[in-house]
Design a protein around this nucleic acid. Structure first.
Lengths: 116, 116
DNA sequence: TCAGCAATTGCCAATATTAGCAATTGCTGA
DNA sequence: TCAGCAATTGCTAATATTGGCAATTGCTGA
């Protein structure tokens, strides 16, 4: 193994680490989409979307199908949808934790009640 | 919502996008670890590990427990372990796909046998 | 009290990522 | 054939991440 496994994992997550790419993967979790179809959803200029799609292609996460001059993208592995689902669960936990913290901070401005 | 959800998700994945941080999360998926204990596993200098741990702390993915002068880290959400598991599955699919591609490329040098 | 270790922080240069703009490719319909 | 649209590529400046080194904090045992 030339590259250690955790290096590959890190690169994998790095390719997910961009708002436009996440947005695209979410759209593709539902069904395949043409580039033009994704454009308004992602809200970035065409050239930039192409670049981000290229990143996903290079990472082997999506595949393309050409029909005339429009290109349809879809997920290679449907498990990506599951990954996003798990991530959402974790994230809502994290955000809930932060909300709690926020509440504590706000409470601390009044006659302090110590954390449980 | 000041920051759109997919922005938060991207940031979440971005914090996973570093070999040392992945390594740490894998270790913590098993059980809590002291910093000194992780050092040889991760194989980077102490100051750098601290920095990466700080990234994980800021992202609310890990928590610390102090005992004397040693600091123990653990996962806040055990679901992170599941996330890493799903990621591994996807990754092995991706790598298998690449291996196939490689095999095809090699086969293409001999009297070509078309893809199934 | 202070020497010594664990862990962290701050600062900075090297490196990688992102996003904007112009130019190009490939297909389609007039 | 060529005008026009979909998508992509190349180049570049702005921005963010990284990793190395020195200095600091906090605890413990002599």
């Amino acid at each position: 193994m030339s590259t250690p496994l955790y290096q590959l994992k890190a690169e994998f997550f790095k390719t997910l680490g961009h708002p436009a790419r996440i947005r695209v993967l979410e759209l593709l979790s539902e069904r395949e989409h043409a580039v033009a179809e994704m454009l308004p959803e992602v809200g970035i200029e065409p050239a930039h979307l192409s670049q981000q799609l290229a990143v996903l292609r290079r990472a082997n996460l999506v595949k393309t199908r050409k029909e005339g001059s429009t290109v349809y993208y879809s997920l290679i592995s449907p498990q990506v949808a599951e990954l996003l689902r798990v991530a959402r669960t974790i994230l809502s936990g994290v955000l809930a934790g932060q909300a709690e913290l926020l509440a504590d901070l706000q409470a601390a401005q009044r006659p302090a009640k110590p954390p449980s």
